[in-house]
Write a protein that binds this DNA or RNA. Structure first.
Length: 311
DNA sequence: AACCGCTCCAACCGCCTGGAA
DNA sequence: ATTCCAGGCGGTTGGAGCGGT
């Protein structure tokens, strides 16, 4: 028996979200809280499936999201966590306030993997690339550059047609199964991983010896500037959506400081500069323009009765 | 200016999991 | 014990943006 689709897909919109849709979703979530995602599109007046709404919210619209490239320290933490947890991005994201699993996954695939390879580190095993792995990586680079491949070696040496991706998948599965096998220990490991405890000795050593591991293109965000929400309703992990019924009263924003106004290029100001949704009751009002936290001085957000907590 | 190739990331897809009935 | 459902998760893809020619 086949699984039912998560929603009736007939007539539903797909693809990039418009600012109008974002507004509707944000307005709905902030006024009604996160309830049954399947019901959200209908209640919010969106022609989207609930899953799409959930992803849009958790990966992009959540007010506690930190934007921009990962900082050096965050990258190190991701590398360290990946060495311990494998491709369990949501678990990794849980250790990086304001980051989503999707974001970390993308950053891993587009930046960190390459850096590690340049450093001669296998991004799957976090160990120095073996000669055989080197061959695979070379093949990968050839693939990347669309160079013609040499004829496949004998099947006993390397699986013909075994792409790096398949290889990675195997490793990922292996990693995953290993992780599952060691679920008990993983939990313990996770307990031992904290934001302040970033970087295993190996990772630090690798980072320090490599001339290639350059994070200078990354805007620095000081760890002490990272704020986690004080209300449990908005944990930084992607599992936040499991918390149901977030009421505006329970909102607390993390502070996302940007070095200067030039960082605002990240936002499409044409889309959002002009709207100003408000919610709340009585005197307690909250500007729910999620971007406003980047546009206004922090003091703008400390003057109301909303809770903010600086770690 | 036009084309091409590459990079990056938002969004989608399908499977998995846990809880309720 | 079984089925169904909603949410979560990880892998993959499509297209916008950018730089090079």
């Amino acid at each position: 028996m086949g699984r039912q689709p998560c929603c009736d897909k007939v007539g539903l919109k797909k693809g990039p979200w418009t600012s109008e849709e974002d507004k509707k979703l944000i307005n709905f979530i902030l006024t009604s809280g996160q309830c049954c995602w399947r019901a959200v599109p209908k209640l919010a007046g969106l022609l989207r499936c609930g899953k799409s709404c959930r992803l849009r919210w958790t990966n992009y619209l959540r007010p506690d999201l930190k934007r921009g490239l990962l900082s050096e320290s965050e990258e190190k933490l991701v590398i360290d966590l990946h060495a311990r947890l494998g491709n369990r991005w949501s678990k990794i994201a849980a250790h990086l306030p304001g980051r989503t699993d999707n974001e970390i996954k993308n950053h891993w695939n587009t930046h960190i993997k390459k850096k590690l390879r340049k450093m001669g580190i296998d991004p799957l095993t976090h160990k120095p690339l073996s000669p055989s792995t080197d061959q695979i990586e070379q093949k990968q680079r050839q693939d990347d550059h669309n160079l013609p491949l040499p004829p496949p070696p004998s099947p006993t040496v390397t699986e013909p047609g075994a792409s790096v991706r398949a290889d990675e998948k195997q490793a990922t599965n292996k990693s995953s199964s290993e992780s599952q096998n060691s679920e008990q220990t993983t939990t313990d490991e996770e307990k031992s991983i904290t934001s302040s405890g970033m970087g295993t000795a190996e990772t630090d050593a690798l980072l320090s010896i490599s001339p290639f591991f350059c994070t200078d293109e990354v805007p620095m965000i000081k760890p002490e500037e990272i704020l986690v929400p004080s209300a449990p309703a908005f944990s930084s992990s992607s599992s936040v959506s499991s918390n149901s019924s977030v009421k505006p009263e329970e909102f607390s924003f993390s502070r996302m400081d940007w070095p200067d106004a030039s960082s605002m290029y990240l936002w499409d100001m044409d889309d959002f500069s002009s709207w100003d949704l408000m919610c709340g009751d009585g005197d307690r009002k909250l500007a729910i323009d999620p971007w406003s936290q980047y546009q206004y001085p922090r003091s703008s957000f400390e003057q109301d009765s909303w809770k903010f907590e600086l770690l």
